[in-house]
Nucleic acid binder design. Structure first.
Lengths: 189, 189
DNA sequence: GCATTTGCCTAAGGGGTATAGGCAAATGCA
DNA sequence: TGCATTTGCCTATACCCCTTAGGCAAATGC
């Protein structure tokens, strides 16, 4: 019988594509086996479990998103950098909703530490170098930016803003304006 | 045989409690049946499906959260109101993580329209009456506040801010300060 | 007190997860 | 090139969750 050439990496990539098509929650070992025209049990030599598969997809998405962020940030500073990173998150979520959802998977501390999660925090910190913030305000601002990016994108993706004017792209760019103004004029405690 | 006295409402309440204990994703018709010491099939006279049960829990949580918001907002305005509503969301998520997760369930448009979702948007709009914003900036601001509240709370709950100083309560109150400053000084387009 | 309704039950089928053990294809080495 | 070993995918099996159909007994209504 001809072998399918399964690999942990191929399974994770295919899982990411499947997530974008049907949603991350619907990514299942069985569905993936069907996609490769292979029996379910065959996948268990390559991934430890369904959870392991999903974790793999999450790490993949986190890294891919961090790569896009780094690329967008190169050569930019200040508001320009802020808008660029903001758009990376929003565009990624639009193009790859399943992967974006995967990136939100709760990871156990050890896995999280080894993930690209730290790169994301570093990118936000890099943007803040264009503004005049010192600790602990810088950390507060990192958390605020993370919250806005994640919150907005997930509400928009979840349909929370649908069917209402003005359009969400307009709001997004005004929010970036507002964040820029806030960072330039961060209130004293 | 003694009847258990099942009711749609009792099932949804118990489902909400179960969600807080084991996580919303682990709320299952089977688990609920075990909790009532009843056979699984018995629940299907009260809820249409597993999805219907989860939707019920989501609507319950959305309404409960809106009630808390209304109560907190009564008699407050300006930054005081802003901080009060912000804390309602954060405290609810801390006390009832499963219900908070349930409130994030994506609802179909008809169900969403009949939910307490609209009350949430109205509460945020009410806060903005204490600031000097006109449309469309008011809508942009509503979306920003929603994004920050939801984003911060879900990142904090997901462990995104863990193991790092300063503590998250401190950041939260500084973020409320920052939002207040931003709303008082919203940038022109 | 009896008929009707209601509530929970048993039975059964379908899909996902996971493990054990088997056979054949690929690989490595003389 | 031929044989032994390793590797990859398979069948079989068991368990859990979801869902529907149909049955019997408790509660309700007249």
């Amino acid at each position: 019988m001809v072998r399918a050439g399964l690999t942990r990496e191929r399974l994770i990539r295919a899982g990411a594509e499947l997530a974008d098509e049907v949603g991350f929650a619907e990514v299942t070992v069985s569905a993936l086996a069907r996609r490769f025209e292979v029996k379910v049990a065959s996948l268990y030599s390559h991934v430890k479990s369904s959870h392991d598969l999903k974790t793999g997809i999450a790490l993949f998405a986190l890294a891919e998103l961090a790569d896009r962020g780094s690329a967008a940030l190169a050569g930019r500073a200040g508001k320009d950098a802020l808008a660029a990173l903001a758009n990376v998150y929003r565009d990624y979520a639009t193009e790859h909703p399943g992967r974006y959802a995967a990136a939100q998977l709760r990871l156990d501390p050890a896995t999280a530490a080894a993930s690209a999660g730290g790169r994301h925090a570093q990118m936000t910190r890099a943007i803040l170098r264009g503004y005049d913030l010192t600790e602990p305000d810088q950390t507060h601002a990192v958390r605020l930016l993370g919250s806005v990016f994640h919150g907005y994108v997930s509400l928009e993706l979840g349909g929370g803003f649908s069917h209402s004017a003005p359009d969400t792209g307009e709001t997004w760019s005004r929010i970036v304006d507002a964040l820029d103004a806030l960072l330039r004029n961060w209130p004293a405690p």
